[in-house]
């Protein structure tokens, strides 16, 4: 089991991170965010997508004290900071987008004001095209 050496020099891909599950009931939401953050170290483009019950991950006001689980909501602040750094610094060739599917959001009676971070709201049709154009899809 020798470590395989990939030649990733100069490789720039677009990763889509699909978040479709509600927070805390399962661990997926928390652990996929770790992957999102690691991808920044490789300066890869990222679409961080929230659809279905995944939109609840972004809800502001998570308070997990009474279930004694780690509140991972502050991680979104870090992701937003990474995104802003990438947007503002010309030396960082990395585009990050935080996207919510309009249909999923509306079906749950939520609006953009309910979210902890600023998001782009895309229709299902627009989102389908965006997902289709990505190189790697990782689901949480």
């Amino acid at each position: 089991m020798a470590e395989y050496q990939f030649d990733t020099e100069g490789v720039k891909k677009t990763f889509t991170f699909m978040n479709r599950k509600a927070p805390y009931g399962t661990v997926y939401a928390l652990e996929v965010l770790e992957t999102v953050l690691i991808s920044a170290a490789f300066e890869q483009h990222a679409n961080i997508v929230f659809a279905d019950d995944g939109v609840y991950q972004l809800k502001s006001g998570h308070d997990t004290t009474e279930i004694n689980m780690k509140n991972f909501s502050p991680t979104f602040g870090i992701i937003e900071m990474e995104k802003e750094d990438a947007d503002e610094d010309d030396d960082i060739d990395m585009v990050w987008r935080i996207i919510v599917e309009k249909e999923s959001m509306e079906a749950r009676g939520l609006t953009e004001d309910d979210f902890k971070v600023e998001v782009e709201v895309l229709s299902a049709a627009e989102l389908a095209e965006l997902i289709d154009s990505s190189d790697c899809v990782i689901s949480g």
Partner: peptide
């Protein structure tokens, strides 16, 4: 689950 519904809603034509 609604997985198939989500796939059909969010998959581009031709995929």
């Amino acid at each position: 689950r609604n997985t198939l519904d989500s796939c059909l809603r969010l998959s581009a034509k031709g995929s």
